[in-house]
Design a protein around this nucleic acid. Structure first.
Length: 101
DNA sequence: ATTCTGACGCAGG
DNA sequence: ACCTGCGCCAGAA
């Protein structure tokens, strides 16, 4: 099913292994209700059955703020994503910028 | 209809 | 670096 949040999933699906982007960055390239918050909302609805790399999206500061923060943290570590501290991605090293759809 | 809760971002302090 | 408040407003109850 395609809804107004579908563009968000299409962008997230393109984030490369080992790279990360932010809620706000996505909200700036595709129209999403409520901007960055809407992106977070959309990811929260992502069915576990779908293979969308939701763990590659963090906040503008690099902080991991999802409800399942540690699962996300572990998944990123598994991709060798550099951290500044626990639950804190070194964004300047791995930030990925999406291309407008 | 009304209330409540946010996977944000930014501007202070 | 940390914390707080605020704008934003869809969805759930």
């Amino acid at each position: 099913m395609r809804n107004q949040y579908t563009p968000v999933y299409e962008i997230v699906a393109q984030i490369p292994f080992g790279r990360v982007t932010t809620y706000g960055t996505i909200a700036r390239v595709v129209p999403v209700p409520r901007g960055a918050r809407g992106v977070g909302w959309a990811l929260a609805q992502t069915p576990a059955t779908q293979l969308i790399p939701w763990w590659r999206v963090v906040s503008a500061t690099g902080r991991i703020t999802s409800p399942n923060a540690y699962e996300q943290y572990d998944r990123l570590l598994a991709e060798n994503v550099p951290m500044l501290a626990e639950l804190h991605v070194n964004l300047s090293a791995v930030l990925w910028h999406p291309v407008p759809q």
